[in-house]
Design a protein around this nucleic acid. Sequence first.
DNA 1: GAATTTTTGAGGTGCGTACCTCAGAATTGC
DNA 2: GCAATTCTGAGGTACGCACCTCAAAAATTC
Lengths: 341, 341
Amino acid sequence: MNKPTVHDIAKEAGVSLATVDRVLNARPGVRKQTIARVQEAVARLGYVRDTSAANLARQRQYRFVFVLPEGPSQFVDTLTAALREATAAQIADRLLVKIVTIPAHDPHGIVRVLQGLNPARLDGVAIMAPETPQVRDAVARLRNAGLAVVALVSDLPNAPRDYFIGINSIAAGRTAGLLMGRFARAGGEVLVATNSLRSRDSLERRLGFDDVIAADFPGLAVLPTVESFDDPRRMEAVVAEVLRSRPRLVGIYSMGTGNTRILDALRESGRAGELVSIAHELTPATRRGLESGAVTAVITQNVGHLIRSALRVLRTLCDRTPIFEAQERIRIEIVVRENLP
Amino acid sequence: MNKPTVHDIAKEAGVSLATVDRVLNARPGVRKQTIARVQEAVARLGYVRDTSAANLARQRQYRFVFVLPEGPSQFVDTLTAALREATAAQIADRLLVKIVTIPAHDPHGIVRVLQGLNPARLDGVAIMAPETPQVRDAVARLRNAGLAVVALVSDLPNAPRDYFIGINSIAAGRTAGLLMGRFARAGGEVLVATNSLRSRDSLERRLGFDDVIAADFPGLAVLPTVESFDDPRRMEAVVAEVLRSRPRLVGIYSMGTGNTRILDALRESGRAGELVSIAHELTPATRRGLESGAVTAVITQNVGHLIRSALRVLRTLCDRTPIFEAQERIRIEIVVRENLP
DNA sequence: GAATTTTTGAGGTGCGTACCTCAGAATTGC
DNA sequence: GCAATTCTGAGGTACGCACCTCAAAAATTC
């Protein structure tokens, strides 16, 4: 027996094609019991809609917008590159993707951009932005307008997003902590640096990191977090100072952006290679760091998977078909010099 | 301007639909210059065949066979499970997948199975088998019959396979070496275990492992490889003996199967947690090992990606569309307790 | 039970492509 | 220049589904 079609359903349920169609596409004008009869037939025959035929028939276009932070960030650059690559490939069947950028640290600017999106001309949105009440409202507005909304990289747990595509920050921090503890067995002090602890991701990474160090590696003392507050030079200066003044320093954990400057300071100090240094996200800077030995390990997420997963999830949300969870779980990857992709 | 269709091509090239069709599907009966005219039009308009419409029209079914080793192996079990899961999901559009098993260590048995495949009833084959001259011939036969053939997990570099889906064994071994060196900073002896060094994968892993240890970690002495030759009890006994008699042992590297027994021996010895132990492939056994602390790190490949990649590649090979390389590169993943998926 | 409303059936068209036939045009060989 | 051959065009049907219309049937209301 081959794949059942709408015709088979019609025969099985003893109704006409038109009725089957009305039921399948949730169009009005069908009695409850008739709906039930059709659905039973669907279940009995194991009918599944042929998505490509359906999309062909309805001339489906998936119009998605990716909302990404603007400004210099190697991570966002690789993300954008992956997105362009994915939409250029044939994966991009019936796909129309636009990228809009938002000012990274201006909640009102972000909301202005989100409100500028016209839901009538869109089917889905992927958002990478810090969660604020205004962002939550904007997300709610888009969802209420019938759009599929996914959070990308950074979750919006209290906003009514449909899905989150990214990694758990606490687990990522714990992984960094475990590696730091294992690599810096001898014990000593560890520097933790980030742009700002006001970002939930940084905070959660720090929580996870501290948790593991405290529980399993009593020989390590984690120093208070150094924050650069969007000033790369400040970051470089502070890190250089710590490197100079702390002879017992054995490790550096960079939780967020600004890896380039931290690595510069490390190189300047002459202690690269001797210290354990762990950073997040595989970018040109961290890649060079791994190759040169200045970076010991990078905790990262596969940007290509991230993007493709977002596209797939947005699509299945639009189609209202079930999401294949196993495929969409983004892994926390550990990259060292020898398994650089 | 919307996506061009065959009609647009016909108009642009000044020929009829039938001719465009003949050119696109490489059917005979078209003059060379007409073919060129059509291809120019295709290039000019940027026409891409609508695969779903094409598949719909030709009632395409992709009939694939996965040839996997039989016998007790947790890795193959997870592979099979992933395959079942993938083919059950809607990814499995127009997909007919059969699994056949081969005797793992009997070259003639393998070839018998491969020769039993009827190329007329198949479109593609994914093979996980050790490379022998007979296997090479069998692969050549399948390819000559017009099938798409991919090597899975273990490459067949000298066979005319279309593609290899898996990780580079030397790089995997190097990664293990780097981790062992970093984790076992203090120095000492390292035990390396596998089922048999006659398997190319094991040999290459050992090469990569030794390479890195020799170059970067002079404090570590790698002992000769322990082989179990398909006898799990032998493996357990030998490992137990080494654990007892070598007080300077600081690490165990398990390159292949038999992790369950090695971990049993390790647990028995009371030295679990104290030794660095690195294994390959995330299976129920190594997962438990990570959770309990008996295993320090696992080098693995994402089985789900492996399977989905194989399915995608086989499909694009059948469609003769270009492979999206970036998506199909399987990464060497490092799993520790904290980033267990 | 007549009038109304709600359901249902039959049928058609189109999406972009594959594949088929048959007639007529262009090209080739001699 | 004629027959034989090779190309090409016009047209059709089919794939599985979405979406539309119009009329007929059934259920509901009063």
